[in-house]
Amino acid sequence: MNLDNDADLESALRQALSRIEPGRDFSAISYARPRVVYWPPSRMMLAIAAGLVVLLLLPIGMLQYQARQRRGEKAREQLMMALKITERKLQKTRQMVARELNRRNNL
């Protein structure tokens, strides 16, 4: 066994595994936020995005408006038809009653 070599090895290991003090800014670097590449939006980009949103929402809004109009027109027609039928039947009943009263008066 070579004692010199062992001593060298031990010395080398001690040196390699010895404690090294971190640098001053080590903590700052460790705790710092990861750096994100930020692309600052320009006004043009924002305007285009807003335009796209409007272009998407406009047809949806138009379709909803048209569907509501159609439902409303149909409801209006049904309402008018219901009232017209009711009015017609009431008038018919009134006429029947009037004829019956006339008939009785003439007897």
Binding site: R71, G72, E73, A75, R76, E77, Q78, L79, M80, M81, A82, L83, I85
Partner: peptide, 27 residues
């Protein structure tokens, strides 16, 4: 003819009445 109009539908239909619908105000 089969009509079934509930209160909501009556109100909705009435809101679409125009001047051409006879006595719209009365209706």
């Amino acid at each position: 003819t089969d009509l079934n109009l509930n209160k909501d539908l009556l109100g909705f239909g009435a809101s679409f009445l125009s001047k051409g619908d006879g006595d719209a105000a009365k209706v």
